[in-house]
């Protein structure tokens, strides 16, 4: 065995959302029932990564109620408003603001009604943990449920609509100059690889992912995106290739199309960086794609660090590395052990 180790880094920036004048919108309705339980009708699809959870946390924070009191109804043209797609790492960044706006308006309705009920100036009131409290004393005056009951009883809304238009104008057609995206995600990864110079096999032995979440609304969910993204990046770099021959798929089975398993993925160290974004909800940015992009470049650079050979084609299969080493040897350029 002739194993050589190397370290490499990869960085990237990624326009969050759509750009190019494509509609980049979010919207949500929020409704509080007479017992204070609240439903958010959010058009954003949850893929399991946690958009519903983010929506819940944003609404809870903005309204001043507990997440347990919130239920999210998601992504149904028959019951939820249009919130754009869950793609482009945009769901938290765009829909988060829409939900924040909806929740803020509902909070104002609650405070207006509470002010009338308590005969107390609205400015002196705040909602905390499901209770309308007097700011100065912190005293709990009335539950949000009782206030919502009054709103319903008087035919008022106890419901609010929030939206957010993140659409950015297209760049110049000749020069591509312009403000292309509302914001960008940022990430740098450090990869450590082992290259077997006899077989060309590359193993990723360590990965550190420094990903800028702006503000991690749910750190475990952000880590889930970082670890899952890097794993997809690892698959792209080392294993996965959809092969067509004459336009006909040769990788029409998972026996031939290789997805990384638990044995292929090292422990991924998540370094969540938080540089707040002025336009994101509570400073948050999208992380799904930023966490995916730097992995393959970091591996490529780590391979160079290990063996002094620059691979310029992906995926980095053992054959490709093996022949690159042979060619370097033939040129007398390979650093032998």
């Amino acid at each position: 065995m002739a194993i050589r180790r190397g370290l490499g880094i990869g960085s990237m920036y990624y326009g969050i959302g759509y750009g190019f004048s494509r509609a980049d919108i979010g919207s949500a309705e929020i409704e509080m029932a007479e017992d204070g339980t609240t439903t958010v009708y959010s058009g954003a699809c949850d893929m399991g990564q946690g958009v519903m959870t983010v929506v819940t946390q944003v609404a809870a924070e903005e309204l001043g109620i507990e997440p347990e009191q919130i239920r999210v109804v998601a992504a149904d043209t028959g019951s939820t408003p249009d919130a754009g797609p869950t793609s482009g790492s945009r769901a938290t960044f765009v829909q988060g603001v829409a939900v924040q706006n909806a929740a803020a308006e509902l909070r104002e309705q609650i405070l207006d009604m509470a002010s009338r009920m308590l005969e107390c100036p609205k400015e002196n009131l705040v909602v905390r943990h499901g209770q309308v409290c007097e700011i100065e004393s912190g005293r709990e005056m009335v539950s949000v449920g009782k206030v919502a009951h009054q709103l319903h009883f008087h035919g008022r809304r106890a419901a609010a609509w929030g939206w957010h238009d993140n659409t950015t104008a297209d760049v110049d057609p000749e020069t591509s100059q312009g403000d292309a995206y509302a914001t960008y995600g940022w990430a740098t990864q450090l990869a450590e690889v082992e290259v077997d110079t006899e077989t060309g096999r590359v193993r990723l032995t360590k990965l550190v992912s420094a990903t800028d979440a702006g503000k991690a609304i749910n750190p475990v969910a952000v880590e889930g995106q970082i670890e899952g993204g890097a794993t997809m990046g690892l698959g792209y770099g080392l294993y996965e290739q959809h092969i067509l021959e004459g336009g006909i798929p040769r990788t029409n089975s998972l026996a031939f199309y290789l997805v990384p398993t638990a044995m292929d993925v090292p422990d991924i160290e998540c370094e969540i960086v938080e540089v707040p974004d002025p336009r994101g909800p509570f400073g948050a940015k999208g992380v799904a794609e930023p966490a995916t992009i730097p992995t393959t470049p970091a591996i490529l650079n780590a391979i160079y660090d290990a063996i002094g050979i620059r691979i310029t084609e992906t995926p980095i299969t053992p054959e490709r590395v093996f022949f690159a080493i042979q060619e370097a040897r033939d040129r007398g350029e390979f650093e032998e052990d």
Partner: peptide
């Protein structure tokens, strides 16, 4: 041993770390 035991189960979302 955990990684070996679940190596026949593909997960596309998590990267396995949190499962381990």
């Amino acid at each position: 041993e955990i990684r070996f035991a679940i190596s026949g189960n593909i997960c596309r979302c998590t990267g396995y770390g949190k499962i381990v």
